[in-house]
Amino acid sequence: MASLEVEEKPSEVKQNAIWGESKKMWAIAGPAILVSVSQFSIGFVTVAFAGHLGELELAAVTITTNVIEGFVFGIMLGMGSALETLCGQAVGAGQHNMLGIYLQRSWIITGITALCLTPCYLLATPILNLLRQDKAISELAGKYCKMVIPQFFAYAMNFPIQKFLQSQTKVWVMTIISIIGLGCHVLLNWALVTKLEFGLLGAAMAGNISWWLQVIAMVIYVVAGFFPDSWTGLSLLAFKSLWGFVKLSLASAVMLCLELWYFTAIILMVGYLKDPTLAVDSISICLNLQLWTSMVTLGFNIAASVRVSNELGAGRPKAAKFSIVVVVLTSLAVGVIFMAIILATKHDFPKLFTDKQLVIKAASKLGYFLAATIFLNSILPVLHRKEWQ
């Protein structure tokens, strides 16, 4: 009996270690997933409501979301992501007073970047025509792009605030704000698109209002005195060393853009097919679901980054490797669950976006490919993150 007890101890220790690491990981990943999913679901909901307006409207919103916004989103997210490195270093060095300076510096850079990229929205129709997209889709997408310019500038404010709060693990208020924002967005779409029948104008208005409500709420949270050490008010120091900040931001932007722009390339390529409206509609349904599940993976990505940084900073490289294993296995398990759901509902999930039978049938045929892609993408972003840690 004694020998049996001795044999059981290593497995019990291992189980306790896995359980302990899982709790630490979910404490970080849980809120991050909720924020990512909630904010991405704003576009997800918009596409769903637009799909029930008609095939052309669904295609136009898809082109806007995945081509025009997909192009600028990667740049804006990358420019804001530079803040993650700087804020993390400042927290580690105990220089909390620099966090507010970095946040303001990032706002300046992302704001200027937004101004420089605004012509992409204003000239969306000629850009899409130049890329040989369907003329009817390009025309409507161009009109919709102009309607959603306000939410583009909300991105410029949102991404730096996220990194500012995540670096200090102050994420639950941001999570609550994001969830409430998503709920408001659903109600606004129902009221403006379904009940008042404002069409794409209603969808654009709902998106603009929802994004700015979230950004304003988070700005108030930051400046209202909850961060006395890291936010000491506006400072002219934010205008110093901008070029060094820009170089770091550009490096982050290039890396993220290469990851995100392949979705843009897919939408553009299917736009060359014989029936572009049907092709864009069906592929957009699958891409939106894939991107939605990727937001969950992004939460594990953030958790892996924080846990590995913590353990390496404490001089525990073996613990850092163990953290990676736990995060990857958890993300893989979630990927298997999502894959099973897609396979089980491959004839039904397109109905979330449209009631057109041709589109539903075409999207259903892509179910197996969608399931496989979701499974592979459940671990790739987490592993990729470790290459530069």
Score class of each variant (00 low, 15 high):
residue 373 T to N: 08
residue 86 L to V: 12
residue 320 A to Q: 03
residue 343 L to S: 11
residue 11 S to H: 06
residue 235 S to A: 11
residue 205 M to A: 04
residue 299 G to L: 03
residue 59 A to W: 02
residue 180 I to W: 09
residue 224 A to I: 09
residue 170 K to T: 06
residue 11 S to Y: 15
residue 203 A to G: 00
residue 134 D to R: 06
residue 37 V to I: 08
residue 254 V to H: 02
residue 38 S to I: 05
residue 249 S to T: 11
residue 348 D to L: 15
residue 118 T to S: 13
residue 99 L to H: 01
residue 194 T to C: 03
residue 213 L to D: 03
residue 334 V to D: 04
residue 114 A to R: 09
residue 81 S to W: 06
residue 257 C to F: 05
residue 220 I to H: 04
residue 163 K to Y: 08
residue 343 L to Y: 06
residue 6 V to I: 15
residue 35 V to F: 00
residue 162 Q to D: 12
residue 90 A to F: 10
residue 363 A to D: 07
residue 215 V to L: 05
residue 131 L to D: 04
residue 225 G to I: 12
residue 309 S to C: 05
residue 27 A to L: 10
residue 199 G to D: 00
residue 382 V to E: 01
residue 265 A to T: 15
residue 6 V to F: 07
residue 302 I to K: 08
residue 365 K to I: 15
residue 260 L to A: 05
residue 376 L to D: 12
residue 355 D to W: 03
residue 382 V to N: 09
residue 345 T to I: 12
residue 259 E to W: 04
residue 134 D to P: 01
residue 52 H to M: 07
residue 11 S to R: 15
residue 166 Q to T: 13
residue 111 G to L: 12
residue 233 G to Y: 09
residue 119 P to L: 08
residue 357 Q to I: 14
residue 369 F to V: 13
residue 351 K to H: 12
residue 110 T to L: 10
residue 17 A to V: 12
residue 90 A to T: 09
residue 268 L to S: 02
residue 380 L to Q: 14
residue 6 V to M: 13
residue 244 G to L: 11
residue 64 T to Y: 09
residue 119 P to C: 05
residue 184 C to Y: 14
residue 27 A to N: 08
residue 371 A to P: 06
residue 264 T to A: 03
residue 13 V to P: 01
residue 44 F to V: 00
residue 275 D to C: 11
residue 138 S to C: 12
residue 251 A to S: 15
residue 333 A to R: 06
residue 367 G to K: 01
residue 388 W to D: 13
residue 141 A to W: 02
residue 143 K to W: 14
residue 168 Q to K: 11
residue 127 I to L: 14
residue 165 L to C: 13
residue 276 P to Y: 09
residue 367 G to S: 11
residue 83 L to A: 05
residue 126 P to H: 06
residue 347 H to L: 14
residue 112 I to P: 08
residue 251 A to F: 13
residue 59 A to T: 12
residue 34 L to E: 03
residue 346 K to R: 14
residue 130 L to V: 10
residue 368 Y to V: 14
residue 161 I to P: 03
residue 81 S to V: 08
residue 161 I to S: 13
residue 314 A to D: 09
residue 215 V to A: 09
residue 271 G to D: 02
residue 28 I to D: 05
residue 333 A to C: 15
residue 147 M to G: 02
residue 334 V to Y: 10
residue 97 N to Q: 15
residue 205 M to V: 00
residue 216 I to A: 13
residue 49 F to G: 00
residue 87 C to E: 01
residue 310 N to K: 11
residue 294 S to P: 10
residue 206 A to Q: 01
residue 349 F to Q: 05
residue 125 T to I: 02
residue 205 M to F: 00
residue 293 T to I: 11
residue 265 A to K: 00
residue 333 A to N: 06
residue 330 T to Y: 15
residue 389 Q to E: 10
residue 192 L to A: 00
residue 132 R to N: 15
residue 118 T to G: 01
residue 349 F to L: 04
residue 119 P to Q: 11
residue 241 S to A: 14
residue 80 G to A: 08
residue 166 Q to G: 03
